[in-house]
Structure formats: structure tokens, C-alpha cells
Amino acid sequence: MTWFGKRISFRRLADRAIEFASTLAALTAAAIVLLILAFITIEAWPALRDPGPARFVTDRTWFPLSGQFGLLPMLTASVLTTIGAVLLAAPPGIASALWVRYWAPPSLAWFHRRAIAILAGTPSVVFGQWGLVVLAPLIAAWGGSGQSLLTAVIVLALMTLPTIALASDAALGSIDDELVRGGAALGLGRWGIASRVVLPAARSSLLAGILLAAARAVGETMAVLMVAGNVPNFPESLLAPVRTLTANMALEMGYASASHRSILFVSGLLLMVAVAIPYLLATIARPRSDHG
């Protein structure tokens, strides 16, 4: 398809304008990424020089004002909450998109989409309050204070659901109707079409949506801060309190002096690295498998 793409692209002046504008837009997006990375790095720089990167890994715990800078427990917490939330949210999120596209009566589908959009537009604090007031006491019945890894995972799953559902909806909506028609011609039922035709065809788009949701979950701050318990230790169980890297920044940033602030930005930098490395590895591992 490549050669066709090119021939269409450069046909007219207007086409070149689009070409130019879209390149400019892509560059702008890239520039924003670079600016943010540069900003975080500059802010974190003093702490990277003193106490230096090693301490963030070797120190066992986090008492920045008493000279203990271990970030690993919080990195673990961020990774665990994110993976847990995505594992919980992805199946119902994709199922919801399937239902909307292939099962729901049109009026209900419309209602469902709006409901998901509302969920997407509900502020973190509302989720946090709900998690703290409603969910935490329920979980406390199993032991602990109720503010725990598990609570954070559930609240975070709820918050990532709309991202996954909306992105999946978009992914399913863009599938070639010919495929669906072909599936129907083969005598496949709805589930047959959904599982053998639609989902495989939309696989990479669904994955992109899940990745976005995971990124959103990693970066979420306020709601997690309200329900996770925020003790900066390695969690011993699902009911143990955890502190994520984002909660760490939000909890302490407001009262931090200059050096403490710089150390907090290391949390942010670590978060970026933690997101970028798996993604880049995955991309490099299968660079050409991404043709929709």
C-alpha cells in the first residue's frame, strides 16, 4: 500500500498543506513531551547529584527529611496498582464496548455511551471520597484499615474503565464492515463474529487503548492518595497500605523545601522511566506487527 499512499499524498498544493500542518502538529506533540521530560529532569537534577541515584535504590525506606530516600517500595506500589487496575478493568471495558456495538438496542447503547462518558468526566476526588467512605470500610472487614493496595486497585480500575471502554468502542467502531459482513456470510453468530473477526482485527487498537489506560492509571494521583494508605513500605499483602510514586509527590510537594522538592521530582522521573522502558521494549521487540 505504501506506494499508493505516497502518490495520493503529494497530488496537490492543499495536500501539501495538510502534510505540512500534520507534521507540524506531530512535532508540537513531540516538543511537549521533550519539554516535560526536560522540566522534570532539571527539577530533579540537584537530587540526582546529591544524594545521587544509587541512594534511591539502595535505601530501604523513605524518610526524606531524615536522609532515607528509598523509592523502590513506591515503584513497586505504582506497578502493582496499575497492573491490578488494568487487569480488573480491561475485560469489562472491552465487553462493554462489544455490547454497545453488537448487542445493545440502539437506545440503550446511546445511554450506555453517555454513562461511560460521565464516568470519564467524574473528578478524582469523587472517586477518592467514594473509595474512602464506602469502599474502605467494606474492605476493612477483611482486616487492616481498609486503606490498602486492594482498595487502590479497585478504585483505580473504576477510574480506568471509561478510558478502556471509550477507546475500545472507538477501536471496534473503525473496523471494516466487510469483515463483519464476511463473518456473517460464513454463518457466524454474534459471538463468532465478535471473537473470531472483530476482536482479532481490532487487537492492536484495543491494546493501544489499554496502554493508554495503564498510563492513566500510573499517573493518577488524588484518588489513589485518598484510599491507598500511603505507607512507603513494600506491601506484604493485598490488604497492606501502599504509597505510589504519584501519591508521594502530591503528599509532600506542598510542604517541601527546595532540596526535598528536588527529591520528589526524582519520583516523577522514575515514573516516566518506568512507563517508557516497558513500552519501548515492547515496541522494539515487535516493530512490524502493528498493521491494523
Binding site: V33, T221, A250, L271, M272
Partner: peptide, 9 residues
């Protein structure tokens, strides 16, 4: 994707 993960604070 990295940008999507930047915490809002």
C-alpha cells in the same frame, strides 16, 4: 504514552 502517564501534579 509517556506523556499520558505524567501525573497531573
Amino acid at each position: 504514552i509517556v506523556l499520558a502517564a505524567v501525573p497531573s501534579i
